[in-house]
Amino acid sequence: MKNITLGQYIPLDSFFHRLDPRSKICAMVAMMIAVFIPAGFIGYALIGAILIMCVFISRLQVDFIIKAMKPMIFMMIFLFVVNIFVVKSGTLLVSFWIFNIYSGAIIETLYIVIRLLLMIMITTLLTATTKPMDLTLGLEHLMGPLEKIKVPTHDIAMMVALALRFIPTLIEEADRILKAQASRGVDLENGTLREKINAILSLIVPMFVSCFQRADDLADAMEARGYAVGAPRVRYKKLAFTAGDYIVIIGANLVLLAVIAIKIWVIK
């Protein structure tokens, strides 16, 4: 459970870490749109090159990014197998038994795989360089205009922030209960179905109990410090754009424009 790197914040000091969360979110959206524009390998090469540069600027270890991509390998193999059966365009490359592999299948699969990898890189860049709390704060600001149509943006942001805040705590708790039950002979791998169900219950029940308890305690603690639902709040942390933020937003949108241009003029 400790090996989940997707979505984990890495405390370092870099240009990206210091950026305003709002600009990072905007830049991410622009890059995501760019990934979805079918601009062929040239477009992906451009996006990929920019992202690799960003990884170096963010001082993240390349290992870390690769690890975040690992859970996707399974999905890629699955896609590849499905595509081989389904896609019948392009020239026939290999043919044996009932399998006919067309060049279209290979290209199609490569497109999807590259797209997935680029998307993981983008989200990892965002979550690894932005504290979860800052991320929700940024989201809340960006959702601000929705307040006019009575969307409870603050409550949503608070809920997301609390959920994110408790992920590591719950992982830790699950780890502890797992160990405590393992000491009492719980074995999740071996045993009959009945024993396995009992083993899983011995983890889930204490987890639920502790979650409810925590939620209760947290609500009390928040109220004790004057938190009231719907009441106006002031901020301790003020978000402010710097020159870097403008550069990143403009840069991301330039990439998007470039990809659109490639789509229009290069790939017809």
Partner: peptide, 13 residues
């Protein structure tokens, strides 16, 4: 080896 955890009360189910 019987191991009683810190805050063992959380393991009851």
């Amino acid at each position: 080896v019987g191991l009683v955890f810190q805050f063992a009360e959380n393991q009851l189910f």
